[in-house]
Design a protein around this nucleic acid. Structure first.
Length: 271
DNA sequence: CCGACAACCTGACGGC
DNA sequence: TGCCGTCAGGTTGTCG
């Protein structure tokens, strides 16, 4: 389920369980997810104290007092289960703290992965090195977008999904942000005016912030033994709503492009 | 540079 | 009931 807000909610949910805690056991249940799990992950994480948790784009970060950072990516179907009553199929990593809290990283499709870095080398991690700014950070501005999109003929939707332009957006929140900004997904990225980019940057921030706030309200569910970390699909205005009415009176349309669905309202998202 | 497509993998859902 | 096709939040690479 994980775009930036889901990963942020996940990290916030893991923090009270892990921060400051010593890891009694760290047990990979298989050798690989999308990529091989580092063979020394257990040895380097077990017995370490978690000093901080963080997030970069859609990646979760777990720092330890040994100078290591465990990176997790949830792919399409990954989630952490907190204090699970019993193991489930697709629990690929089990963690228990000395305080007796337990975590299971569950990922049926295994598009996610785990990695282990030196904390001082996180910025040089290849997936991060070429990444654009955080959309909720100070560098994500209309002026930045104007520069980053200059000369680009691709549709704005494709550019917002490109992690080198801005880091952390996925299909759902790109559709939602373009709708809020009233910009057509197919609009040529390099030809959007500064005022409209201002509207777009603000829409991206607003969509993410409200999703994180909504996610925050599920932290209790998240922490429950069988907790689900769900999308707040009820608050989506276009995603998954093909044929339903838009607030403007138009009808939400859907188009498949390169294997992904785009949802938008042609009435209020004109060019 | 751009778009299309495939690959990785499982599960949910609808139609018949 | 069950079988089959379709679709799903991401990332990476190839090909024209």
């Amino acid at each position: 389920m994980p775009e930036l807000p889901e990963v942020e909610t996940t990290v916030r949910g893991l923090t009270p369980v892990l921060a400051g805690q010593r890891l009694a056991t760290v047990e990979p249940r298989r050798a690989d997810l999308r990529k091989a799990i580092p063979p020394d992950l257990r040895q380097r994480m077990q017995g370490a104290v978690v000093t901080a948790l963080g997030r970069r784009a859609k990646y979760g970060l777990v720092d330890t007092d040994r100078g290591d950072t465990m990176v997790f990516h949830l792919g399409m179907s990954g989630r952490w289960r907190v204090d699970p009553a019993e193991p489930l199929a697709h629990d690929h990593l089990l963690i228990e703290t000395e305080a007796g809290r337990r975590l299971a990283l569950n990922d049926p499709r295994r598009f996610g992965f785990l990695d282990l870095l030196r904390t001082d080398a996180v910025d040089a991690y290849p997936p991060f090195a070429a990444m654009g700014p955080e959309p909720l950070g100070p560098d994500f501005t209309a002026a930045y977008l104007l520069d980053a999109l200059a000369g680009r003929a691709a549709p704005i939707k494709a550019m917002l999904l490109d992690q080198r332009i801005v880091a952390g957006l996925g299909n759902i929140y790109v559709c939602e942000a373009l709708h809020m900004a009233r910009i057509a997904p197919s609009r040529e990225a390099g030809r959007i005016s500064l005022p409209r980019l201002e509207r777009l940057a603000e829409a991206v921030r607003a969509v993410l912030v409200s999703a994180i706030e909504a996610g925050g309200s599920t932290l209790r569910d998240f922490a429950a033994p069988d907790g689900e970390l769900g999308y707040f699909s009820k608050q989506f205005l276009v995603y998954g709503r093909e044929g339903e009415p838009c607030a403007c009176g138009g009808a939400v349309k859907r188009r498949a492009e390169s294997g992904r669905s785009t949802f938008w309202c042609p009435r209020c998202q004109r060019s």
